[in-house]
Amino acid sequence: MADASAATAPARPAGATSPDRPAGSVRRRQRLRRALTGWAFSAPFTVLFLVSMALPVVVSLVMSFTDLRSTDLRNPLAVNVVGIDNYTRLFSDQLFLRSSVNTLVFVIAGVPLTMVLALAAATALNSGLVRFRALFRVGFYLPVVASIVALSVVWRFLLDPEVGLVNNLLRLVGIDGPNWLYDARLALPSLIVMAAWRNLGFLMVIFLAGLQAVPADLYEAATLDGATRWQQFRNVTLPMLRPTLLFGGVITGIGYLQFFEEPLVMTQGGPLSSTLSVSFHIYNQFGFGNYGYAAAGSYVLFLAIVALSVVQFRLLGERN
């Protein structure tokens, strides 16, 4: 760069106030160079990101306004624009409505359950009395890193009506355990418990980080004022942890709104569609080749997630 500017303005003594033209061109060239460098680093990612993610998001939206089916892929001219037909059809589709109710139940029951368990584990581990904290932390985190397919094998074995451990334990106390996954009333609750079991370790780690950020002198002051442990928890821990709890609740909510893997590997959405989720319904429509319809369903789900996130920002905004 220094060479280049010297070449364009050889007569200027170094350090003199630069005249407009050469300095401007130097600056322009510098800017161009910076842009090229920035994009040289960004280009490989950006190309892959556009092709495999950004473009599909747009294509999905476009598809949702067409009657595209898997058989049309070879003959794109047969595809018609159908406006919002797919969306109106969704809301008269009994299975979609059923899956929406199931998903809402899953979120409304699953999020609080997971959060309470995670908060209990985090508070216990944070109490300062516990040794082997690392062991407990690792233990609670195990299901988070394990494959859902492996977990499904274990859980179907545990919940097996005859040889499963759960019903064997119930038999010890004289209860004849039900067929958990094949009973239309019990299948969804079973999956909710399984999801809470699977995700509590992740939330626990987030809550632990939040708990450790609560200043210790707040507890000292509360102790001096004669507050019991429960009162300290209610009046110090919970208010201080509010942002963390909200954050944890929302990411869990976003994840649970997309609830899919558990029914896919455990119940295939049954019995009697009692564990069919919105994502699962979309996946089934994809399987039937109804691509446009599936895309519309996925955008409804997307909107629900955006709405949930907006609510979070509102709640957090009030706080700050």
């Binding site: 920035g38 994009w39 998001v57 892929l73 994502s279 691509y291 996925s298 997307f302």
Partner: peptide
């Protein structure tokens, strides 16, 4: 680094964090 389009790129990446897998699933398969 400072370069034009950087902010837009970052916002696109952040926005992608919110997109459920089902939205991209069908087009990706196609």
């Amino acid at each position: 680094l400072r370069y034009p389009g950087k902010r837009a790129l970052f916002l696109a990446v952040l926005g992608m964090l919110m997109v459920p897998g089902m939205v991209t699933f069908v087009p990706q398969f196609v």
